[in-house]
Design a protein around this nucleic acid. Structure first.
Lengths: 204, 204
DNA sequence: CGTACATTGCACATGGTTGTGCAATTGCAT
DNA sequence: ATGCAATTGCACAACCATGTGCAATGTACG
């Protein structure tokens, strides 16, 4: 019965997984990291990487797919059945935080220019969700900003990157980062600081 | 007297200037733009660019120097003799806005990884000024944020990029952008929306 | 006109990266 | 141990970008 290589996903799949993981951190350090750099960092020869992925494009593309998937899942799950826009944003940011941190390279690539075509497109649905949420909050008077909802969405994204950078540079404890980022984002949306802190405390 | 090639800075200097300008926009479109791309875009042959700049490094480095210079000047001038931190931030952002927009590529390169070594370093003094200002505001209770001053500085920078992107993508009118960005930044620092709008109105 | 200088049009060497081919080797599981 | 699949270790071709050299061409200015 086709042995199915026991439960162990064989070392092939393990390698593939490791290559993806290493590629993530390696590309974060240098978005132009070569296949050789990635391979070496994964403890493998360049040729082996090509055994798993036909091209550099394909490798990064796989990474993008995983990232989008993880982000979409986290966001959808966090906002399920929450009606208040402020609470929704709070839950969303808190849930997205660790995932976005893991994949922040790709999101950074997404907003940069000529990398893999279509990163932006693949993130578009997620972004649109956020815009709708922000718009609703603005309409209901829960949020306040001189910026239109789509611009505010950009701002929120960038703020998350900023806080991640801060953590990275040791300016902020990783423990507090998620909550701090959430409060910061809410504040930027015009939610009074007191209400923002309260919300985050209540949600987490 | 040494002739000094009349008042006209000769076409050589004009070319040099145009190469720099074009390089700025070209590198903005693609941070990895080749010397050939830049040269063509400047209506010149690659070899000519090397006549003005010994290397790609040198070209970008010149750009960085100009950017840092312009930013530092604008910031210093805007904040001269202003004591209130909130007003100081307002003036600073409003003044920095057009300059940062012009040079945003470089600031983006600065926060990204392995480009020209030392972009971060050259921007450091400017950044430190901002951190001190934010710290003072936090101490005086004018600002409020769960983030420490240095992290808040990151956030402010990134917010500016976000708004620039928004303008770039047509989500926001260029006229309003500077003021909107300023209000957004102040709001993110914990200044109440009403006070922020008031400040910006009073300053511009 | 003729001088000086900037620009051009090659050509060239160099180095790095991508992607492929193939034989040899390693490791796992039966 | 033996077979199977993955991994390795080259070697290769193609491409692209960086810098440099040099002769020819243009262009402004006295």
């Amino acid at each position: 019965m086709t042995a199915m290589t026991t439960g162990s996903t064989s070392r092939a799949d393990a390698n593939r997984r490791r290559i993806l993981d290493v590629a993530l951190t390696e590309l974060l350090r240098d978005p132009d990291a070569s296949m050789d750099q990635i391979a070496r960092a994964a403890g493998v020869v360049r040729r082996t990487v090509y055994g798993h992925f036909p091209s550099r494009e394909a490798l990064i593309s796989t990474l993008v797919d995983e990232a989008v998937q993880a982000l979409a899942d986290a966001d959808a799950h966090a906002r399920a059945g929450v009606s208040d826009p402020a609470e929704s944003v709070a839950r969303s940011v808190l849930a997205l935080w660790p995932v976005a941190d893991r994949y922040r390279l790709l999101i950074a690539l997404a907003q940069r220019t000529v990398t893999v075509q279509g990163i932006r497109d693949r993130l578009a649905p997620l972004r649109e969700n956020k815009v709708r949420l922000l718009q609703r909050g603005l309409d209901e008077g829960v949020f306040a900003s001189p910026l239109p909802a789509p611009a505010l969405a950009y701002v929120h994204e960038q703020m998350l990157f900023a806080v991640m950078e801060a953590v990275n540079d040791g300016l902020l404890a990783a423990q507090e980062a998620g909550r701090s980022a959430t409060v910061a984002v809410l504040t930027a949306a015009g939610v009074p600081a007191s209400r923002a802190t309260e919300l985050v405390a209540g949600v987490s």
